[in-house]
Amino acid sequence: MTHQMFDDVVRSDSSLRRFLHGLPGVDQVGCEARAAGLGTRSIKTTAKAFAIDLAIRMVDLTTLEGQDTHGKVRALASKAMRPDPADPTCPATAAVCVYPDMVATARQTLGDSGVHVAAVATAFPSGRAAMDIKLADTRDAVEAGADEIDMVIDRGAFLSGRYLEVFEEIAQVREACGDAHLKVIFETGELQTYDNVRRASWLAMMAGGHFIKTSTGKVQPAATLPVTLIMLEAVRDFREQTGQMVGVKPAGGIKTTKDAIKYLVMVNEICGEDWLDPDWFRFGASTLLNDLLMQRTKMTTGRYSGPDYFTLD
């Protein structure tokens, strides 16, 4: 399941380290300037309408709270299927994202609507548990009907340079996923440097992750434009080298339509239109959806709307 092209790379800890540390470095200031530059694109009228609908279709509508209940998850799933009950042309979101114990509930509500169920597994959000527990967590979620598994990497192992351990962990979780798609969460706020984000991206891609994801949403900073830029460059370069596409999911902290559009501009200009699809780009978000809906209404009615007109689920 891991990519054969990299068999030599993952032969030992030292060969893997050589590879990851041989990737081109990232200059922080240049990277942030590029991200900010893309953020100045002005997306208006038809382009904005296109971007809003696309963003809605890319949302992994998320609730990951200790206080989550089945009722809350059912409400969220309903909203994912029909984000704007007043407007049948409004598309559904890509998925709902819940803890493993809520998967069955979400699955039941969503039925065959096409909206996926994503579950955070592997001792989310810290990842601090024994390997067999992480695998069991994954299998439970898949058995309960999850289409997608959002795993966290062991940041401790990564930061102490035990790359092979991280690689094998991802590969094993991927195997435990069966047919479910695997998103690999780096918790970039803990990795700290863009060099680390680039290395983690390649590590996860080589280990067979279908998606790479920035954050759990539990650590600040969560998703940022420059971190996402690094990950987009990584999936672009990975396809160039292997022919294989990997998706990207920024998660946490993306709250407004304006923010979401900046991400889409970045996807468009770094990776191109192939990635402008819910199969290859997602937003991990909760409050973002209502802002998208509010802006969508503004586009169709020509007047500004207010939060009272959108459901809080």
Binding site: S42, I43, K44, T45, A47, N268, E273, L276
Partner: peptide, 10 residues
């Protein structure tokens, strides 16, 4: 369509 055409923003 996935083509993201930026509308004129003068």
């Amino acid at each position: 369509s996935n083509v993201f055409e930026y509308a004129p923003a003068p």
